[in-house]
Structure formats: structure tokens, C-alpha cells
Simulated scan of single mutants.
Amino acid sequence: MAEPGPSDLRGFLAVAEAGHLTDTAAILGISQPTLTRRIRRVEEFTGATLFDRTGRRLVLNARGRAFLPHVRRMIAELEDGVAKVARLMDPERGVVRLDFMHSLGTWLVPDLLRDYRARHPHVEFRLHQGAARQLVGRVLSDTADVALVGPRPEEAGGELGWHQLRLQRLALALPEAHPLAAEGAVPVNLQEAAEENFIGMLPGYGTRLLLDRLAAEHGFTPRLVFESMELTTVAGLVSAGLGVALLPLDDPYLAPVGIVLRPLDPPAHRELGLVWRAGAGAAPPVDRFREFVTAADRADGGWTSRRAGG
């Protein structure tokens, strides 16, 4: 007895979802007898009839309903495998799994994708947003190919490749009426805010990692009164007087209305860069995209300079 092939399983799934042989055959672009033979091969392999006929419709019986989720998983696994092979073959029509932090979704990622897709319009991107540490984990587990994160992860130089794209100076964000805001943009030591309420990012997010690290270096633990997934929310709540925050000075989309940004002294920075699995290769679409991002001449009139101060 021959095992059913992928086309047989897809035929079974299509009939199970549509409930009609003639209509399903037309959708699949095959004859009804061909589709009937495909269904029969699946039933012969399982050793049971999987459909009951109700008028002109075919309805899954209990055996068919039990088999259906397994067929769906088999087809999904097959398609995933085919997609992975395709990614290894054609740099112009493959897939790049790109992860990025929420704060980069308004400027860096759109600029980057716009320029790359203008050169390689048939490459497919599968995008995912998340916390910096989560994204690093996804790259390490091969759930993502590359990720735009910050700060530089501890795995960089070992399990991960790293290319720095931007270096943003960090500042203490203060409500305009706050006493520490009176000196304007004069640099400030973070220790001066040790007793303040902080608005911060959620644990695992890049700017939160920086806040926790810098506060520890200054001998205190920040008192968090609200944690967010978005830097814009953090800035907005600071402007409302709910607390202070650690923010980058030159993010083009933060629009710090109603707040004063005082650079940290000693200076501290938020590194933004691209990570990938060290030694990963042989996937031309991913390799070409990574080369595009990391090419030094991109900074000369390319996407990295499009946003002034970005």
C-alpha cells in the first residue's frame, strides 16, 4: 500500500474544509475523479472511511475529525521545511526573519526595509517585535535570523555576531517643573535621582537593562512606579509628572514635549546594533541582507543617515 503524498493530504484537507468534491476540485484545478482518488489513497492508508456523505456534501466523521489535526500539522511541517530550503537557495526570493525592539519600529526598521526592498523587491520579511533579551534568545534558538537590539548583548563575540549601528547618549528625563530640571541640559549624575520615582521599560527591554545596570553601578535600585513596552509612553508619563526616566537623547520619534533631558555624567550610551548567530551562513537571503545592513558605505547617503540624529 502506497503512502499518501503531499497532494493527497492537501486534497483531504481541502475537502474537509469545503465539504464538497466538485467545488474543491475546481479550486485545486484538478478533475473530480483525480480528487476522489486522492481521498481514497488517504482512506486506504488509514484503513477507514473518513467522510460521511450528506446529500451532495462530504462531512468528516469521527475518524476523519480525529485525523484532521494531524494532517494539518504534517502539511505545516512540510511547508516549513520547503520554506527553509528555499531560504538556502535564492537570495532574491527567499525569506529573512527579522526581529526588532519596539522603539525601533518607528524609524530605523522602516528606513532599512524601504531601502532594501527597493533593491530586492521579492525578498520576504517575517517581522517580530519584542524585548531585547527575548529577541536575543530567538536568534540563538534559530527562531529568528537577525535582530536589531540594544544594548550589546553579553553573547556578542561568542555565540552571536554583532555590528553596532548607532550610539545614543543616555539622559535623565525630568518633568519641566522638577527641581533637577532647573539646570536645563547640564549633565547630571544619575545618583542625584536615586530617591526619585522612575518610569521604566519592562524587565528584559533594552533601556530597562541599561537603567538597572547604571543604577547598580551608582549603588541604588530604581523605584519603579510604572513599567511600559514603549519609550514614547515612558516619555509621556514623565511629562505628566509621574516620575523620571532614562531615555536616549537623540531618538527621532520620542518628541520630548514637557520634559527636560539632562545627559548623564559620566556619559553613558545606548548601543543599537544587529545580532546574528555566529557561524551561521549558507542562507543567501539572510547573508545578503546582513551584508547590506553592516556595509560601511551605508552610512554615506544610505539609510543610517536619513534621520538626522536618529
Rank of each mutant, 00 (worst) to 15 (best):
Glu3Met: 11
Pro4Asn: 05
Ser7Val: 09
Asp8Pro: 02
Arg10Pro: 00
Val15Ile: 06
Gly19Leu: 02
His20Lys: 08
Ile30Pro: 01
Ile39Gln: 02
Arg40Gln: 13
Phe51Lys: 03
Thr54Ala: 13
Arg57Tyr: 01
Leu58Trp: 08
Val59Ala: 03
Arg63Cys: 00
Val71Asp: 02
Arg72Thr: 04
Met74Tyr: 05
Ile75Ala: 04
Glu77Asp: 15
Glu79Gly: 04
Glu92Phe: 09
Gly94Phe: 09
Val95Asn: 04
Met101Val: 12
Leu104Ser: 05
Leu108Cys: 07
Pro110Gly: 08
Arg119Pro: 04
His128Thr: 13
His128Met: 11
Gly130Val: 07
Ala131Glu: 12
Arg133His: 10
Arg133Trp: 06
Gln134Leu: 12
Ala144Pro: 03
Ala144Gly: 13
Pro151Ser: 11
Glu154Thr: 12
Leu165Met: 09
Leu167Lys: 14
Arg169Val: 03
Leu180Glu: 09
Ala181Gly: 03
Val188Gln: 06
Gln191Asp: 11
Leu202Glu: 14
Gly204Val: 07
Arg208Cys: 09
Leu210Asn: 09
Leu210Thr: 05
Leu211Tyr: 08
Leu214His: 08
Ala216Glu: 13
Glu217Asp: 13
Thr233Gln: 12
Val234Ile: 13
Ala235Tyr: 02
Pro248Lys: 10
Leu249Tyr: 02
Leu249Val: 12
Asp251Ile: 05
Val257Ala: 14
Ile259Leu: 15
Ile259Arg: 07
Leu261Cys: 06
Trp276Ile: 05
Trp276Asn: 08
Gly279Ala: 11
Ala282Val: 07
Arg288Pro: 01
Glu291Leu: 10
Phe292Pro: 02
Val293Ile: 15
Asp297Ala: 14
Ser305Pro: 01
